[in-house]
Amino acid sequence: MRWSVLTDNLDILLQGLLVTLQVSVLAWLLAVAIGVVVALLRVTRSRAARFLGTAYVEFVRNVPLLVLIFFLFFALPDIGITLSGFWAGVIGLGVYTGAFIGEVLRSGILGVPRGQLEAALSSGLTYLQAMRLVILPQAIRTTIPPLGNQTINLIKNSSLTAAVSVFDILGTANLIGSRTFAFTPVYIGAAMLYLVLTIPAAIGVNAVERRLRIGYR
């Protein structure tokens, strides 16, 4: 085996790592924004809002992520919207993971005792203020571990962007592999690079969880 392919191509592999990181961070921000909106839709009194939130979650969760990304990349040009592989990947991942994060946040919100909302509302806060200042900060604390899992899933799922010509970790590995046929070292190397991202993410989640617990009950 020619392990030297890894060192010979270290610069483009690190470039791939950077792309994976960029896709993941942008998609994560989008997913959290969507997740918050979906979770709020699903806990309000309005039946229409709950329906909308539920429909979104059920639709997105039950469609393969790769289909979403292909749709954004190949089908949207039909209606005049052309996305690069990078942005089709970011949006697809964000839309997809947003549904899962929405579910996680929803159960977190439902886990906050009812009296918290009542105290906040009775003090004169608006519903949105009560959510933002009182309910969501508490909901997020209990949902840090599942949110961490979703984040790690997102990083791993970002490899699907390789299918729309993004040179992320996997895309770069595919390229090197097809040029050198040194598949074993290349894909082991790719796996290592994913671990470089996911293991610190897991450690980070634990640290955040511990820090947020301080001073809290």
Binding site: P113, Q116, E118, S122, G124
Partner: peptide, 20 residues
């Protein structure tokens, strides 16, 4: 109702302080 609530304070059996 928010105008009314600003004039009406409420104290609950379970305190309902914000723990965070």
């Amino acid at each position: 109702i928010r105008r009314v609530r600003q004039e009406v304070g409420m104290v609950f059996q379970q305190f309902n302080l914000y723990p965070h």
